[in-house]
Design a protein around this nucleic acid. Structure first.
Length: 548
DNA sequence: AAAAAAC
């Protein structure tokens, strides 16, 4: 098995890796580092949690260790979709560049320009940025990108979701043609494919899925309630959430509670605090310094419950949490996987509860279609009852629609499916979860991937016509390069079966834990009479959001 | 029904 020491990394980097306690690269690292060190472009198709960050950090530190930065001309550039991810990449550089003299700057929004300007002026080897702030600096004339030798795009598909692609294209065009590009995405949506065809040159393509093992340690439960009135739904969900947290007792050492909307993040956080829980919100509308502080508190254990939007669903380096709660079922099915993947890491046990209401039926269907598994149903904690006349048994609404929840629930998956099939360009079913991104994880040989089968694609036709935004490159017209790519051993697996060992990974692998049948377990209630509630619960209801 | 990111 390959060791880091076999990878031609700089001795200073190897020392830092050894200090961090790692010996064996993950599949994405083993696949991406050698071509990166040869100066080739890399297209890494990998999820968070595969050791992706180190797969570009390590070769970058190695390649940049000779040479020196000039004022305002960074030698390399890493683009990340969120501020937290960018900060995390920066920490990664600190870890692996500690025995070198490389300098770095973190350019993210929400913090003042002054410090960032100073660093840029002095000259940095590595610039880590979110696209908006980077372009902001550029437009202010503080930054030259013509010295960029290596450019990394991290989580490209998320950039796509967030509408960053025009910015990314622009940034590509501001950097020299001769740069080396390391490009990472969890999926290859057509738009992503277009970008890579346009800006990557004969990339080595490495594809891996997350390791399945630790997912086996996640117990999933879905608790469905049907509030009698729609405008009571939020309140009922908060009550249920509290009841679940209490029923878990000591087992819940720390948890992330995901909501779909920022307003709900605030409301739920406030509600939990009011009821005496140690809780704090995090989402994109909060001040950056508060975001950082909250995350730090959660990491060091002084904060027990983190209520989060999907800003925290992916990529964030958060220590293993005992529980994940989906206050809302996510509207993007893949986010379910990302969210519950925040628990059950590193072989520890984790529990993921989701709260469902009739309004979430189509989200639930999409999630279960994606993971090809029913989420095990569970009853609300014993003793839980909705306030007012709410019942947990689904019952009909007062309008003339009739009863709809119970019978439609189990079937809704299939039925919905036909109407709205999962988009083809979505992720292949890559599910599972495990170590955080910033660590290098040892993957047992047995867990390594089988080669991905090439999958039939329906329309390969006119797509290539859309590559008109082609920059002029010194190395000749587009056709030439396309031919070159065709003879490339690492080329796109979908275009040929004889590509050799190009693809490493388990892209279509469905982890065992999703295929085995679940036992529906009832929450264990130790003390049946535990009605005792913090006094706050009785007196301070949280203001109901105006709904509808 | 949304989140994220620039001021």
């Amino acid at each position: 098995m390959t060791k880091f020491t076999d990878l031609k990394l700089d001795p200073a980097v190897l020392r830092a890796i050894a200090d961090a306690g790692y010996e064996t690269p993950t599949p994405i690292q083993a696949g991406a580092i050698p071509p990166a060190l040869e100066g080739r472009d890399v297209l890494g198709i990998a999820q968070t949690g595969t050791g992706k960050t180190a797969s570009f950090t390590l070769p970058m530190v190695t390649m940049l260790s000779s040479g020196r930065a000039r004022a305002r001309m960074p030698r390399s550039l890493v683009l990340c979709p969120t501020r937290e991810l960018a900060a995390q990449v920066a920490e990664n550089f600190d870890t692996y560049a500690k025995y070198t003299r490389l300098t770095k700057a973190l350019l993210i929004g929400g913090v003042s320009f002054g410090e960032q300007d100073k660093l840029i002026d002095r000259g940095v080897d590595v610039l880590i940025a979110t696209p908006g702030r980077l372009l902001d600096h550029f437009e202010r004339g503080k930054l030259l990108l013509t010295g960029v030798q290596i450019m990394v795009v991290d989580e490209a598909d998320r950039m796509l979701d967030m509408g960053f692609i025009p910015d990314i294209e622009r940034i590509f065009q501001l950097t020299p043609f001769t740069r080396q590009t390391l490009f990472f995405s969890a999926t290859m949506a057509p738009e992503i494919e277009r970008i890579t065809n346009t800006f990557l040159h004969a990339p080595a393509r490495i594809e891996v899925a997350r390791q399945a093992t630790t997912s086996e340690t996640i117990t999933q439960k879905l608790i469905q309630i049907t509030p009698p009135r729609r405008d009571q739904s939020a309140k009922a969900k908060r009550e249920l959430l509290r009841a679940i947290i209490k029923s878990e007792g000591e087992a819940c050492t720390n948890a992330i509670i995901f909501c779909n909307r920022k307003t709900d993040v605030d409301i739920v956080a406030k509600s939990l605090k009011t009821h005496g829980f140690n809780a704090a919100p995090i989402h994109g509308d909060l001040d950056q310094s508060l975001r950082t502080k909250t995350l730090d508190a959660f990491r060091d254990g002084s904060l027990q419950l983190l209520i989060a939007s999907d800003v925290a669903a992916r990529g964030l380096d958060i220590p293993a949490v005992s529980h994940v709660f989906n206050y809302d079922l996510p509207s993007h099915a893949e986010d379910y996987v990302h969210r519950i993947g925040r628990t059950g890491r590193a072989g520890r046990l984790g529990t993921a509860y989701s709260i469902g209401t009739p309004a979430d039926a189509k989200y639930l269907a999409a999630i279960e279609a994606l993971v090809k598994q029913e989420i095990p149903r569970a009853d609300p904690p014993e003793g839980f009852s909705l306030s007012e006349a709410a019942h947990r048994e689904p019952r009909k609404y007062d309008d003339d629609k009739g009863p709809k929840s119970r019978s439609s629930r189990s079937r809704s998956g299939r039925g919905r499916d036909e109407k709205r099939p999962p988009r083809e360009d979505r992720a292949p079913v890559i599910v599972a979860v495990e170590e955080d991104d910033s660590h290098i994880v040892e993957v047992p040989e047995a867990k390594r991937a089988e080669p991905r089968r090439s999958e039939p694609r329906r329309n390969d036709g006119p797509r290539s016509e859309s590559h008109r935004a082609e920059p002029i490159r010194p190395d000749g017209p587009r056709e030439d390069r396309r031919d070159e790519r065709r003879s490339e051993p690492y080329r796109d697996s979908r275009r040929g079966r004889d590509g050799g060992p190009a693809v490493v990974g388990m892209g279509d692998h469905v982890p065992d834990f999703l295929l085995r049948s679940f036992r529906t377990t009832k929450p264990v209630i130790e003390d049946k009479d535990s009605d005792e509630a913090p006094e706050a619960e009785l007196e301070t209801p949280v203001t109901e959001p105006s709904e509808g």
